[in-house]
Computed example of a mutant assay.
Amino acid sequence: MLISAGAVFAQTQKVTSFFFETDLSVLDEQQKEAFKQFVSELDAKDITSISILGYCDDRGRKGYNDTLSVKRANYIKTLLEEQSIVTDKVKLLSGNGKVDLANPKNITEQRAYNRRVDLVIGYISKNLGTKADILPDTLKVGDKIVLENILFENSRSVLLQESVSVLERITETIKQKKQYNIAILGHICCNPPGRDVKDFETGEYNLSQARAKIIYDYLVYKGVDPKRLTYKGMMANFPLGKGEKADRRVELQITGINK
């Protein structure tokens, strides 16, 4: 059972950063993995623009830093091409040279942060809708409802703003249908079974569980009895065979029916 989407669109952005070691213009293996994870959650058809902005820390000569920051930006563009992201949507690619220290404390951390490329993805934001009755009275224990329009920031357990109104309506329905106990199941794509991926928000490798918990926490905060709810991260153990977008999902599963 799928939640339907409306047909109102707007423009918005996703921004993330990838970090380089000193004097290098290629990512290490950990950052490469983070890049692949981020790109795996992009819906290429919705991308309207890409900006790639390279930076260096405050050490080194100006000319060297300017060149290095451009190399870093071009490297990220090459990685996008390798992941089949159409780079004719790159509207801005720039090397911005060094970033000065903001304060005299935490110099090592500041420099590590400043050795980066910011990737800014402009995309179509849909004004999403939902059917009034997503929990009909005919459901049985074990039935699942896919929340197709509950969307998150790439590689994070943070809801996109356009999903909040959808979740509000889902919450009201769950509060009304007190006969159902519900498990919230988070799924990810593009990984071997039994392995979760990193939540960029916390740094922990539990993204599927973290996304399920965000929904759980929201429902409880809005007044749903926590005794009716559970949550679980399903990792990439249950692909639907309908592509990566379908595998990145949150489901509601009926776990009990109260008489």
Score class of each variant (00 low, 15 high):
residue 101 L to Y: 08
residue 12 T to G: 08
residue 43 D to T: 13
residue 93 L to T: 01
residue 22 T to S: 10
residue 106 N to Y: 10
residue 240 L to G: 11
residue 144 K to Y: 03
residue 226 P to D: 05
residue 215 I to W: 09
residue 24 L to I: 06
residue 195 R to G: 02
residue 251 E to S: 10
residue 200 F to E: 11
residue 148 E to T: 15
residue 109 E to V: 14
residue 94 S to N: 10
residue 204 E to H: 10
residue 26 V to R: 06
residue 143 D to C: 08
residue 72 R to E: 03
residue 32 K to F: 00
residue 53 L to A: 06
residue 160 L to T: 15
residue 83 Q to M: 04
residue 58 D to M: 04
residue 190 C to I: 03
residue 124 I to N: 12
residue 107 I to K: 11
residue 74 N to D: 08
residue 173 T to E: 15
residue 174 I to G: 08
residue 194 G to R: 04
residue 59 R to T: 15
residue 241 G to L: 09
residue 4 S to I: 15
residue 115 R to K: 08
residue 233 G to A: 06
residue 79 L to K: 03
residue 181 N to W: 07
residue 137 D to T: 09
residue 166 V to M: 15
residue 236 A to Y: 04
residue 76 I to D: 00
residue 241 G to N: 04
residue 73 A to P: 07
residue 167 L to S: 11
residue 170 I to W: 07
residue 193 P to T: 08
residue 98 K to D: 06
residue 154 N to K: 09
residue 228 R to W: 00
residue 222 K to M: 06
residue 130 T to F: 07
residue 219 L to I: 01
residue 216 Y to N: 02
residue 73 A to I: 04
residue 257 I to T: 12
residue 242 K to T: 04
residue 212 A to E: 04
residue 259 K to N: 13
residue 62 K to P: 02
residue 125 S to D: 13
residue 151 L to W: 14
residue 201 E to W: 06
residue 110 Q to E: 10
residue 132 A to C: 05
residue 169 R to V: 14
residue 166 V to D: 15
residue 22 T to H: 12
residue 66 D to L: 11
residue 96 N to C: 03
residue 95 G to A: 00
residue 123 Y to G: 05
residue 247 D to P: 04
residue 32 K to T: 07
residue 201 E to H: 13
residue 228 R to F: 00
residue 55 Y to H: 14
residue 162 E to H: 12
residue 82 E to F: 01
residue 59 R to D: 12
residue 26 V to T: 10
residue 60 G to L: 11
residue 135 L to N: 03
residue 208 S to G: 10
residue 141 V to H: 11
residue 9 F to D: 14
residue 13 Q to F: 12
residue 171 T to H: 08
residue 9 F to E: 15
residue 92 L to C: 05
residue 88 D to W: 02
residue 113 Y to V: 01
residue 41 E to A: 06
residue 3 I to S: 15
residue 91 K to P: 00
residue 53 L to T: 01
residue 8 V to W: 04
residue 52 I to V: 15
residue 115 R to M: 02
residue 250 V to A: 08
residue 252 L to I: 12
residue 257 I to A: 11
residue 69 S to K: 02
residue 71 K to I: 04
residue 47 I to R: 08
residue 8 V to L: 10
residue 189 C to H: 04
residue 89 K to N: 05
residue 61 R to I: 13
residue 156 R to S: 14
residue 131 K to V: 09
residue 107 I to W: 09
residue 157 S to T: 07
residue 207 L to T: 06
residue 42 L to A: 05
residue 206 N to K: 14
residue 178 K to H: 08
residue 236 A to K: 03
residue 64 Y to M: 01
residue 125 S to T: 13
residue 185 L to C: 13
residue 10 A to L: 12
residue 82 E to Y: 00
residue 209 Q to R: 09
residue 93 L to F: 00
residue 82 E to M: 01
residue 138 T to P: 06
residue 85 I to L: 06
residue 193 P to K: 09
residue 116 R to W: 02
residue 132 A to L: 09
residue 251 E to C: 10
residue 62 K to H: 13
residue 108 T to Q: 13
residue 100 D to K: 12
residue 206 N to E: 12
residue 104 P to R: 12
residue 54 G to D: 09
residue 122 G to V: 13
residue 203 G to H: 08
residue 206 N to I: 13
residue 250 V to I: 15
residue 63 G to T: 05
residue 149 N to D: 14
residue 52 I to T: 07
residue 146 V to E: 07
residue 95 G to S: 02
residue 78 T to C: 00
residue 54 G to A: 03
residue 20 F to K: 00
residue 8 V to M: 08
residue 183 A to H: 04
residue 131 K to F: 03
residue 228 R to Q: 04
residue 35 F to K: 00
residue 244 E to D: 15
